[in-house]
Amino acid sequence: MTGPASDAIVVDHLSKQYKKLRAVDDLSFTVRSGRVTGFLGPNGAGKTTTLRMLLGLVTPTSGNATIGGERYTELHDPIRHVGAVLEASSAHRGRSGRNHLRMICRAAGLPDSRADETLELVGLTPAGKRKFKGYSLGMKQRLGIAAAMLGNPQVLILDEPANGLDPEGIRWMRDLLKALAAEGRTVLVSSHLLGEMQVLADDVVIVAAGKLVRQGPVDEVLGSMGTTQVRVRTPQAAELTTALSALGATVAPQADGSLLVGGAEAAAIGHAAFTASVELHELVAERGDLEQVFLQLTAGMAGIR
């Protein structure tokens, strides 16, 4: 097993030019081990193409992508090092899920027993002998994860793994990925389910139109956009609004009777209320959510290219 530092994913000035479309445009970012990294972007932003280049399935026009310092195609025993889930529907319709896994085991020189172990891990054992065409989308996603875990890899790369999962399945996936990252593995997950990503990811890489828009820990990215607002509830809304306006803060009354205050810290608002003798029932600093930040960051870049 290699150390955590050597399992980083490094994407370095990566570009892919299709006939007229620059799907990925001089993209650079790093993914650290021991954390879950969300890879976010609007449809057609080049997420899947980037992941496919990272995995040696698509040849980059220029640039480099490495896992633990090596290109995927140069890894000695790739699936013992990197597990990937790329598309949920990628198994032969007439083959059972168990045989799909066994086929990979045979090609990789792993014992057939790994197939049963990973089926158990993803909770698919009862459906193992059923043919793939009878699987629900959620079962297909689970089979994809089972395939990725066959080689017990240090690095996991998942493209839209939450698609088609029910709430219970999403919770299960979140717990699994967090547990795997906590063990020191590198986990890179692409998604456009922003609410889910806000809960799951430690770091985010946001791309749009093939270019990097922002990268960093979720909190930093959220904070950097200055979207922090404070929700205040008071029976004396008019007095408080006057007091806060004097401070230069903006006050927006909400339909539920609360006030959303921008441009002032919670402490300053509390102090202003105290000096103005205004009674407060609620004073909560609200972090801007990933969806708002995402839409702000990718504004105008999300169109179909």
Binding site: G56, L75, P78, L86, E87, S89
Partner: peptide, 18 residues
Amino acid sequence: TSEFFHLTATATFLVTPK
């Protein structure tokens, strides 16, 4: 052709990038 028809080429080439 079945590798492309059933989209298993991805799994195959992930196991064996050569």
